[in-house]
């Protein structure tokens, strides 16, 4: 399935990820964390399919368990003591709960990043930062252009060297290491010497003239505006909740979750809405298509 959220303006994408990542790192509240983790999981599977499922089960689940177990071993605060370790340190309910919560937070952030990597491609990032940091974003763009070229060239050089018996796959370990470095060294010369022409090409096309602008294919259209405003609204609700202390809970010395109220319920809904925003967009688009197809 093709992700529709990726086709929105980079600002929309970026603000979304900045918000979910930031909130994911800051809010320690069972309901909010569950909402965030669930949306991250759902979206990552939507984006990366099977790969995401294996990633989440194979790496994220063990990571979650290990981090959750580690915390109580180091942290002995809390009033509800469950039992004592051999070395005399207590294991407390609070520290277990805190461990689970912290682990959850960490895993959620990692999964959000896996979504971020799929959506925020390099060109979007370069576009966003091209306005404020034109020179650096041009460097990023050039590096992104050079790296695949250099990797291909490493292969070419390695083949050429192989034919005179100097490849990493040939000779003793020491000879191999030396040959590997020789290849890197040849590549460096080649890269530097050829880069002079790149600099010429940039100068020739007027790079360095004052008043450089930054062009992109992205356009902020009405659809972007709508989603952006919606997103800002949700963020505002969540921040209100944060200011009023609805979004965090107390672990030590004893566990205390903020009281449920209409406001807290609104905040939970807003948080879930924000997290699921791309998923909802994808589903709506899918439904629309199904309807169009059935009419055709």
């Amino acid at each position: 399935m093709k992700d529709r959220f990726s086709s929105f303006h980079p600002i929309v994408n970026f603000v979304y990820f900045a918000a979910v990542l930031l909130f994911g790192m800051v809010f320690m509240h069972p309901i909010l964390q569950t909402a965030s983790l669930a949306s991250a999981l759902l979206y990552s599977i939507m984006l990366n399919g099977k790969k995401a499922v294996t990633f989440n089960v194979l790496y994220m689940l063990p990571l979650l368990l290990v981090t959750a177990v580690l915390n109580p071993l180091f942290n002995h605060a809390g009033v509800t003591i469950l039992f004592y370790l051999k070395n005399g340190n207590p294991i407390t309910l609070e520290s277990i709960a805190y461990g689970v919560s912290a682990a959850c937070m960490f895993v959620t952030v990692i999964i959000w990043f896996s979504c971020y990597n799929a959506v925020m491609t390099s060109d979007k990032f370069i576009y966003l930062f091209g306005k404020i940091m034109p020179a650096l974003s041009l460097i990023f763009s050039m590096v992104l252009r050079f790296v695949p070229r250099y990797i291909a060239q490493l292969k070419v050089i390695s083949n050429a060297q192989k034919c005179i018996g100097r490849d990493v796959s040939q000779g003793s370990i020491l000879a191999r290491a030396r040959n590997g470095m020789t290849i890197l060294s040849i590549m460096t010369t080649w890269a530097l010497e050829n880069a002079i022409e790149t600099a010429d090409s940039m100068k020739s096309r007027g790079y360095g003239l004052p008043g450089r602008t930054s062009f992109s294919l992205f356009r902020f259209d009405n659809r972007d505006k709508l989603v952006f405003l919606l997103m800002l609204g949700l963020i505002a609700v969540i921040l209100t909740g944060a200011v009023l202390g609805e979004n965090t809970m107390r672990f030590f010395p004893s566990i205390k979750v903020p009281d449920k109220s209409l406001l807290s319920f609104t905040v939970y809904m807003a948080y879930l809405g924000l997290g699921l925003l791309p998923v909802i967009i994808n589903v709506l688009e899918e439904v629309k298509w199904k309807r169009i197809e059935s009419r055709m």
Partner: peptide
């Protein structure tokens, strides 16, 4: 001004 080597003249990635 177009130079000799096609690869060397390209600056950006897109």
């Amino acid at each position: 001004f177009v130079l000799q080597n096609p690869d060397n003249q390209i600056v950006t990635d897109k």
